[in-house]
């Protein structure tokens, strides 16, 4: 299910002023209508890749094009919506839920950011969409972790871009909220958006992603989850950074069955692989997961 090319990253390298090279020679083309997972260890360049897509950091080499525009120009057109981690914001800030969502509309407003009728409608629709309409007049600090996430997603929806970047959207939310967020992401992707999600949560990647980027300074593997999210590629990306448990055939069965169970995790929902080599069952797992969430 590949749609139109939206983000075209060519030979991208980013070196910070302190000499640290965060990304080296990244080449990816991302399409609309997909959910793409971005997986890698801390410091592997996930957030630098986000910053490059939003034009916050200058590439030392290569380019990022969004609908053919450079990143800064794409931002002005409100193409890219960003959903930050919950901890990045002061929740005691004296604003209501609807005020936060309204900030997503600022790029559409005039010099003084006076909201028009259309802006109010967009805010209401976005809140409705994430099921937070009833909370629109709450101060943001009164919300639970999952509700805070929804408000940020609503802000991204109100902004109206066809690219949504989510930074670790599942940290600090319960499984129920995670499932409902995943269902929402599926709907948004089906409407022709590109959803790019950075996550530690290896176990949920096969459940909700169509494509996955495995990153460690450079792209280790990129492609459909079924063929890319394999034990071999993960080992290549994470090196020795993953907790790795393998229960081989003798531990599991009394018969001659040679299949083993592999559990991979960095800190959240573990990735479970079952089979002779530990990886061939991933396709089946993915399909099952998909049924559950859509």
């Amino acid at each position: 299910m590949t749609g139109q090319d939206v983000i075209k990253i060519t030979d991208l390298s980013v070196t910070y002023s302190n000499g640290h090279c965060a990304l080296d020679g990244v080449n990816i083309t991302l399409h609309t209508g997909t959910i793409c997972g971005l997986v890698g260890v801390n410091g592997a360049g996930k957030s630098t890749l986000f910053k490059s897509i939003m034009g916050f950091v200058k590439p030392s080499q290569g380019s990022v094009k969004i609908h053919g525009d450079i990143a800064q120009k794409a931002l002005k057109k409100n193409r890219v919506a960003y959903v930050p981690q919950t901890e990045e914001v002061d929740w005691n800030f004296p604003v209501l839920v609807k005020d936060v969502v309204m900030m997503g509309r600022y790029g559409h407003m005039g010099f003084m950011r006076i909201a028009s009728k259309a802006d109010h409608v967009a805010v209401e629709n976005a809140l409705e969409r994430v099921g937070m309409r009833a909370y629109e007049n709450r101060q943001i600090g009164e919300l639970s972790g999952g509700q805070k996430k929804r408000v940020f997603v609503a802000r991204a929806l109100a902004q109206g871009g066809d690219i949504i970047l989510l930074d670790e959207p599942f940290t600090g939310v319960d499984i129920k909220t995670e499932d409902s967020l995943i269902a929402l992401f599926h709907d948004l992707a089906n409407e022709g958006r590109l959803i790019l999600v950075s996550t530690h949560n290896l176990g949920s990647v096969p459940h909700f992603c169509d494509e996955v980027i495995l990153i460690n300074k450079t792209v280790q593997a990129y492609g459909p989850v079924e063929t890319t999210f394999t034990q071999e590629n993960l080992a290549k990306t994470f090196g020795g950074m993953l907790r790795h448990h393998r229960l081989i055939g003798d531990d599991l069965h009394d018969d001659e069955d040679p299949r083993g169970l592999t559990v991979l995790t960095d800190d959240e929902r573990p990735l479970v692989l079952y089979g002779e080599e530990g990886g061939e069952q991933i396709r089946k797992l993915n399909k099952k997961g998909r049924k559950r969430t859509t």
Partner: peptide, 22 residues
Amino acid sequence: ALKWRDFMAVFFDESHARSIGL
């Protein structure tokens, strides 16, 4: 008085403010 909403957006969430082109 003219730009307080822009300042609010920057103070509340700088990354987001940047991403909407402020």
